[in-house]
Each structure stands twice: as structure tokens, then as C-alpha cells.
């Protein structure tokens, strides 16, 4: 069973990398761990025959988001600092409890959902043409409305971020001008 072998291999890799992300005492190393997690998940998609999803995962998360994170870490964090202080015990406990709660919620909702047979889904989710149609068709079976709502949400977030950043920048320049 090569499929099962690779599945468990990748799952193990992803889980270990995820553990590394939260336990690493250095931000840069955490980011590298996150990179490994995302690569593993892209591999998982590939194993499940979702080529498009896998490629998008690599382009967006690995090529975009983690690069941005690394950029921010290099700019902001004191990278000469080797290790970071561990958070206090009560905080670790709280985080553990929150993760456990989240995990049980996810697991519960996934177990209670009745997934359709895999055979019916395979030929639809594989091709880009089908994905494009599903995303943009306003007819039944299309997801045009949710798609547009998400776009709107993202634009709102973007504009919000720019506004927050600009307000800060204006204040900063004002102070410099006075001094």
C-alpha cells in the first residue's frame, strides 16, 4: 500500500513540524517549521489527487505568506538573539486548554458530518475548469455569492490595515517635524 505509506509518512512529517513550530524558541526557526508544515500539506493534497490545490498552496502560502513572515521577522525581531523566554506556566496551560477545545470542536464537527462517496467527488475537484465554474457561476451549484463576500471581506481587511498603518506613519512624521 504505497498510498497509505506515503499518507502516514507525510502526516508524521506535518505533525512533527507543527510541534516544532510551537516549541522552537527562535522566531526564525518557527517560521522554517511552518514552511515544512505547509510543504507537507501541499504534498498531502498531491497525494489526494488535488493538483490545483497543491500548486496554489505552494504559490500562496509557501511563496507568499511565509516569505512575508520571514521578511517581517528579519526586520522586526532581534535575530541575533538566540532563544526567547518561555512563557509562564499558567499561559502554557491556557494555550493547551484552548488548543484542546478547538481540536475537539473540529474533530466533533468532522466526525458528525456525513461525507459523500469519494468516487463522485474526484473528477470534479481535480480540474481547474470545474473549480473556476463552481467559483464564478451564479446558477445552482455555483459559489459566486460566497466568493464575492470573501473578496469583499479581504478588501475590507486590506483597507483597514492600510488605514491603521497610515495613521501611525502620519503621527510619526508630525513628531519628527516638530523636533
Amino acid at each position: 500500500m504505497p498510498f497509505k505509506f506515503f499518507f502516514y509518512l507525510i502526516a508524521l512529517f506535518v505533525l512533527y513540524s507543527a510541534y516544532f513550530v510551537v516549541t522552537a524558541r527562535n522566531l526564525f526557526r518557527s517560521a522554517m517549521g511552518l514552511l515544512a508544515v505547509l510543504i507537507g500539506i501541499a504534498g498531502m493534497y498531491l497525494l489526494l489527487n488535488a493538483q490545483f490545490l497543491s500548486a496554489v498552496q505552494v504559490v500562496v502560502y509557501i511563496g507568499g505568506i511565509v516569505v512575508l513572515m520571514v521578511f517581517a521577522i528579519l526586520l522586526i525581531a532581534d535575530v541575533t538573539q538566540k532563544v526567547f523566554e518561555q512563557s509562564p506556566r499558567w499561559r502554557q496551560g491556557l494555550i493547551g486548554a484552548a488548543s484542546l477545545l478547538w481540536f475537539s470542536l473540529l474533530a466533533g464537527s468532522m466526525l458528525s458530518y456525513r461525507f459523500g462517496a469519494a468516487a463522485a467527488a474526484v473528477d470534479k475537484s481535480g480540474s481547474i475548469r470545474e473549480i473556476g465554474r463552481a467559483l464564478l457561476s451564479p446558477a445552482a451549484g455555483g459559489y459566486a455569492l460566497p466568493f464575492e463576500v470573501i473578496s469583499l471581506l479581504l478588501i475590507a481587511a486590506l483597507v483597514g490595515a492600510v488605514t491603521v498603518a497610515r495613521a501611525d506613519a502620519d503621527n510619526g512624521e508630525g513628531k519628527e517635524g516638530k523636533a
Binding site: F28, L35, Q51, F52, A55, V56, V58, V59, I62, G63, G64, V67, V70, L74, V79, S127, I128
Partner: peptide, 25 residues
């Protein structure tokens, strides 16, 4: 002969930056 050929190349090209970043770090 991938069906997502060009997306694949974009993904791979975007990996190239890590070599430089890691070298710098």
C-alpha cells in the same frame, strides 16, 4: 506533463527566495 504546469513553475520559482534568505540569515 502536468495539467497545472504553469502554476507548478510559479510555486517552484517562489521557493527560490528561501535559498537567498537562509544564506543571509
Amino acid at each position: 506533463d502536468l495539467n497545472v504546469g504553469i502554476l507548478y513553475t510559479f510555486g517552484i520559482v517562489s521557493l527560490g527566495v528561501y535559498g537567498i534568505v537562509l544564506a543571509g540569515y
